[in-house]
């Protein structure tokens, strides 16, 4: 059977449509629950990157490049880094004040700045690692083209 569309076969594409959302949601869950259960920004960000990589492997790179190319990814990574810097310096400037720490623990919105910095780290790690993956893939393809 000839497969003219880019990417893998129909079975892989169909299953990817189901699982990409789950993987993405799991990465966001790990990120947001970092202050309650094990996990955090770094691990969650890498899981989010894995969802994008799965999408890219299954559907081919054009599908993903239309949504998130290198410039956008680098911009997102920079936004994440600057956000984390701002949040972190807010904590360091007034170390005694941990405002909006709620009375109830073990909840999603209970840790104040910790959750915000987790989100910023996850944004930076996810976008940055995906940009690295994208760059390496494009570089290898280009070298193969030059050889031909």
């Amino acid at each position: 059977m000839k497969n003219k569309e880019p990417g893998m076969s129909l079975i892989v594409k169909t299953i990817t449509r189901f699982t990409v959302g789950l993987v993405l949601v799991y990465g966001i869950f790990i990120t947001l629950q970092g202050h309650v259960s094990p996990g955090g920004g770094f691990a969650g960000g890498i899981i989010i990157t894995l969802a994008f990589i799965q999408l890219m492997l299954a559907f081919g790179q054009d599908e993903v490049l239309r949504k998130l190319n290198q410039e956008k990814g680098l911009l997102l990574a920079g936004i994440g880094a600057i956000l984390f810097l701002v949040i972190a310096s807010r904590i360091f400037l007034k170390p005694q004040q941990h405002s909006f720490v709620a009375e109830k623990h073990f909840q999603l919105l209970s840790a104040g700045f910790l959750s915000l910095s987790e989100i910023a780290i996850a944004l930076m790690v996810a976008a940055g690692l995906f940009v690295i993956f994208l760059t390496l893939v494009l570089l290898i393809e280009e070298e193969e083209k030059e050889k031909k």
């Binding site: 202050h35 941990h98 720490v101 209970s110 840790a111 104040g112 700045f113 910790l114």
Partner: peptide, 16 residues
């Protein structure tokens, strides 16, 4: 737990 509101002490130490 009281200072950071984070039951996961690893996160509390690492980020706060």
């Amino acid at each position: 737990l009281e200072k950071t509101g984070s039951p996961n002490l690893v996160t509390a130490v690492a980020l706060n």
